[in-house]
Amino acid sequence: MRTPIAYFLVASAALFTIGSVGVLVRRNALVIFMSVELQLNAVNLALVAFSRMHGSLDGQVLAFFSMVVAAAEVVVGLAIIVSVYRRRRSADVDDVNLLKW
């Protein structure tokens, strides 16, 4: 393995940042969700890279658990988006302003 671990970590940081900019900038709830997935995925990449660096498998187990949590989160989140869409006929996060002061 010739590639320094830090390169993977920098790639992971870039992906995480792109994901968080997506969450901040986009309006469509589905695309926001995809950006959240991107963030989770970036963190998984960092975990696997650290696991390789330390020569132990704990990071991979953690990444595995984070994948499971991501799957559960997607299921619930998409159900919420569908139910909001049924009420408001829109998946735009700006249209969901019932709790806005």
Binding site: F8, A11, N44, L45, V48, S51, R52, Q60, F64
Partner: peptide, 10 residues
């Protein structure tokens, strides 16, 4: 990239 990092299962 996971594969490169030695995580074929992931």
């Amino acid at each position: 990239l996971y594969l490169v990092l030695g995580a074929p299962f992931l």
